[in-house]
Design a protein around this nucleic acid. Sequence first.
DNA 1: TTTGCCATTAGCCAAAAGTCGAATCATGGC
DNA 2: GCCATGATTCGACTTTTGGCTAATGGCAAA
Lengths: 222, 222
Amino acid sequence: MTQDEQSTFIVADDHPLFREALTHAIGNCVNGARILEADSLATLQDVVEANPGADLLFLDLHMPGVSGFSALAYIRNKHESLPTVVVSAMDEGSVIRRAIQHGASGFIPKSSSIRTIESAIRAVLEGEVWLPEGVDLEDGALDSEEARTAAALSSLTPHQFRVLMMLSEGLLNKQIAFQLGVSEATIKAHVTAILRKMQVTNRTQAVLAVQGLTAKKPELED
Amino acid sequence: MTQDEQSTFIVADDHPLFREALTHAIGNCVNGARILEADSLATLQDVVEANPGADLLFLDLHMPGVSGFSALAYIRNKHESLPTVVVSAMDEGSVIRRAIQHGASGFIPKSSSIRTIESAIRAVLEGEVWLPEGVDLEDGALDSEEARTAAALSSLTPHQFRVLMMLSEGLLNKQIAFQLGVSEATIKAHVTAILRKMQVTNRTQAVLAVQGLTAKKPELED
DNA sequence: TTTGCCATTAGCCAAAAGTCGAATCATGGC
DNA sequence: GCCATGATTCGACTTTTGGCTAATGGCAAA
């Protein structure tokens, strides 16, 4: 139990090479950093739950098991004390803006140089919000529909969230049950709870709500 | 049966004011144009089916009953002789590119001036592909997943397509049956045919495929 | 006219989805 | 230690889905 003072970082990305690069960058910024890696939604949840006091999470928007802002919205609302930096290959302004609106402390395009990444890490560790050059946030309002979905997501338990992500892949209850190693009855119970919390009446509507958090165009009004 | 030589235009947009503006613009470009209007998927289908020889269709990407490129892909593949110009408030390059890839003969941002719109109409009537200034198409390849979905959509009958769009709103068979004024058995027959043609095994997967045609980000690879 | 295709419906059946109530288990507070 | 809370689990039951067969009428092309 000799718990020392070192910082803990979580790197969630399904690309091993990129995880390594990020790990290096972190090492260059912080001495003796403890770095935990996750390459899927399942491991990410395990790591986050097991390390509530982690100092910073690096989160890719696209990993096995989740896509879009679902994981960001879920984790940010569940663990408000865990600053999260989004790391993504999509560097369009609208994606960056939404990431910040969902609570990200920064946004690092995957095309960034090591030098840039390191300065981003340093900035975020000091409590700043780091953005790529040339990006400003203008209005800070999240689409109300999207905000409602994000709030609903954050009310889900870890298992429920994972089940919802699997529903969003079009899987049957039976398939989900098999993959999670529980009975179909358990999945049904989870689904019922999900539908209730998301205020929808069937799985298709739940999936549609989640899809609204997947990277998409801002729909301009006329 | 005194069929004269006048041109027929179809304007599909749920915004009456914009339909009127477009109608005016068309009138300024073509003498004695016959203009048919549609404000929803249902009326659009009726008009298109009833006027197979129409000369040009103006199609909004967002109307009651459809969203995204579904209607464009469906109509373009069903009625290849009907040139279609997409009219949309979303004027990002990726949206324009995909519209053209789905067979549009042009793209008119709703923010365009009357003058611009008229020159667009003239260009398209002469067989050109009209784009906003500063947009070029670069590569012309449609995402293969998206192309497969588009092909599947075009194999649907009009009723099947409408049912699929209603599935995509999360409606029950019973609700769809009520709205269309037919029995639930009919809807079930349609759904079965839809699943077969789209090569999926349940309605959620069908809806996910359609969602892939809704405006979304190009997912960059790393 | 004959031949398809489409739309419509019914009926039957198996599978999947969704609801309810209840048992178990862990965890944190008193 | 004990209790309350909430997460997870599950079986039983009802509703919805989806597949299959079969029959009807309309409509358009060969």
